[in-house]
Simulated assay, not measured.
Amino acid sequence: MNAVIEEPVATLTQLSQRRRDALAGTLIGTAVGDALGLPMEGLSARRQQKLFPRPLRHRFLGRYGMVSDDTEHAFMVGQALLESSDDILVFQRGLARRLRWWLIALPAGVGYATLRAILKLWLGLSPARSGVVSAGNGPAMRSALLGVYYASDPVRRHQFVRASAEITHRDVRAEVAALAVAEVGAWMAKRAEDLDALWKSLAELSTVTIWTDMVATLRGAMTNQMSVAEFARRVGAKDGVSGYALQSVPVAIYSALSHRNDFAKAMEEAIACGGDTDTVGAITGALVGARVGPTGIPHTWRQGIAEYPCSPAMLGRVAEKLAQHAEGESASGSLRYLWPISLLRNLVFLFVVLAHALRRSLPPY
């Protein structure tokens, strides 16, 4: 497989390290953005500022953060890639199997479309037929890693993103949003600077008018140096970003591109828009993380995540094995962990979510 970063002056050692940094930054950036945005999910920008005044920090479990389905899906994609040996059908079946057992562990947060699709999997439908018609952001939140892993292979990148998307969603809007996240992820991993080339590749993902218009809106906003909050309002997110893929994904992409070398700034502006803050934060974190690597993510944010199995350490191990696999080394399959602990973890997570719901009913208003 070709190197992820295409710079002829770089040595093979440098290319290998950049690949590892991009993969680790994507996974850890997903977790950090998810954890930072999770306590504020569903709040308007105004209410968010009342309950969670800046500076941005972990607040889910005291001064620690936990992750939601956004990170868990990215983790499952990484695990499925490790056992696939670049076989799309093996990858799709592996991801579908993980999604089935993930639901059995009773996650507190699961989108309605994803829930229906997984139930169809349990009823025996194949992963190619289990998706439901929904323009939700489920496929998009797990596609950045595929973009980074296949950064130098656009054909495989698109094939694997579509294989991932159709397990849960079979709406062209959800698919093109997932493809867009992967496309920007690949661009970030290469540390590219040619935005014109990126706009061209994004526009070529679909001829659907709503998408080509969105690419034009993104391009115009970047040219005019519009703030992330202004861009969110431009795409209809006046009271917070919704779970609609063609709203949440453009906001995340715009924040990531506007602050592509500053993880903290990108995260602050993306989450400040309100609404679906965990997913927007996760996608933004994945994209900027692909560019800056794990060391470009603030140390306190990385160390402040209290999780199992999706800890930054575990995500880093997945990234390392993916890099070995990409370089032709034996990665010996997916990583093992104590799955039953997920049940206990999810009970704790649910309790904390309920505590947050109670807190939101109290002043300040």
Rank of each mutant, 00 (worst) to 15 (best):
M141P: 08
S164V: 07
A221L: 10
V184C: 08
E72R: 13
W301C: 01
V9Q: 09
L119A: 05
G289F: 09
W102F: 08
Y112Q: 11
A306T: 06
I210Q: 08
R57H: 10
S242P: 07
S201E: 13
G285P: 04
P39E: 10
S126E: 12
L121V: 14
A174T: 02
T207W: 01
M76T: 08
R18Q: 13
Y64M: 07
V172R: 03
V172I: 09
H325C: 10
T300D: 15
L38Y: 12
I305D: 05
A221T: 10
I28E: 00
A270S: 15
A245V: 04
P107G: 13
R234M: 08
V184W: 06
T11C: 09
A326I: 01
K50R: 13
L23H: 03
A221K: 06
I28V: 15
L343F: 15
I305T: 07
I28T: 02
V241H: 11
D86P: 00
E6Y: 09
R100Q: 15
A144T: 03
A203I: 10
R54P: 00
H299Y: 10
S334W: 02
S134Q: 01
G275M: 02
A355Q: 15
G285S: 06
L106D: 14
Q79C: 06
Y244C: 05
A270G: 11
G124V: 11
R129Q: 08
G111I: 05
P53H: 08
M226H: 08
F52C: 00
R191G: 12
F263V: 03
H73L: 11
R63A: 14
V184N: 03
Y254L: 00
A45T: 09
L202R: 03
I5S: 01
S248L: 04
A256D: 10
P139E: 05
K238F: 05
A270F: 02
R18I: 07
S85N: 12
D194Y: 12
R20P: 00
W301N: 00
I283A: 04
L315H: 03
I271M: 13
Q303V: 00
A270E: 07
A35Q: 07
G25W: 02
L338T: 14
Q92Y: 05
A3Q: 09
A96N: 03
V176Y: 01
D69W: 00
F231W: 01
